[in-house]
Amino acid sequence: MLYISTALYCEAKPIILYFGLKKTDQFHKFQVFLGDDILVVITGVGEIAASVAISSICSVIPPEKGDFFLSFGSAGTVSKSLTLKEIYLLNKITQLSTNQTFYPDVLFRHPFREIQGVTGSRVLKEEIQALNQTQEESLFLYDMEGAASYISASYFFGTHQMAFLRILSDYGEKKDQREWLTPNQLTLMIEEKAHALFPFIEQMKEQARQKEQLLHTQTSEFLEQMEQLLCLSTSMKYILQQHLSYYLLLHDDLLDIIKWCDTHIPNSCKSKREGKIYFEELKRQLL
């Protein structure tokens, strides 16, 4: 499953529509949309809101080993050399309040320009002074959720399973709220970048679909059967499990071993000692 978080509904709307996601009423505090191997949560604005929403979602619907997390949203900048309406991938995220920096792995191909992100708790205009004092690098995007999203998501995802995309929406110069982008304008801005954004989401979704299941049902059943039949201790069971894991990497299934057991192992062992003799023999067969 691909988990996507955005702060605002208008940021998620194009994704929800494109992937045909349906709102679920499982959650009351945030809006959550579900579809085929994809989940979108609207966290609300700010670090605490992002943290709470991501943690809650991942606790109720725990990510599996191969799942991915994408944090998407709008961001501002003080650097005029960066292009408005462009989508950027964050390869470094600094939390302004703590000056801690986080580095998501960028192992995947992507079409976006990469940049550093800085996360603060107030709107960009109000943080400009602090940014000038603390940020050595002049090129960065400013948002209000990135660092917190990284911290929260890292409890559930590996560094290689997270990506942070931001669309540059403004230069932080607007004097008051009336001049800010409307939700519709932001949605349209994102829709204009659909050609880059949606294939990337598809790619992450596809990647998250690849799952591993090493110990399949047949193995678990066989293991339990042998545990009873051969009176195995916990450590012996663990050893046998390791032998089975190895065997299955070299063979398609356990059919030959099951056949061998049918002819070489009795239906019950009289003692632990007898069980151990057959256990040793079975181990040899599995090598």
């Binding site: 080993k65 191969g66 995947f108 191909r109 790619q203 596809e206 990647q207 690849q210 591993e212």
Partner: peptide
């Protein structure tokens, strides 16, 4: 994780 799509990495 095995990847069916070599273009991912």
């Amino acid at each position: 994780m095995k990847n069916s799509n070599d273009n991912y990495y």
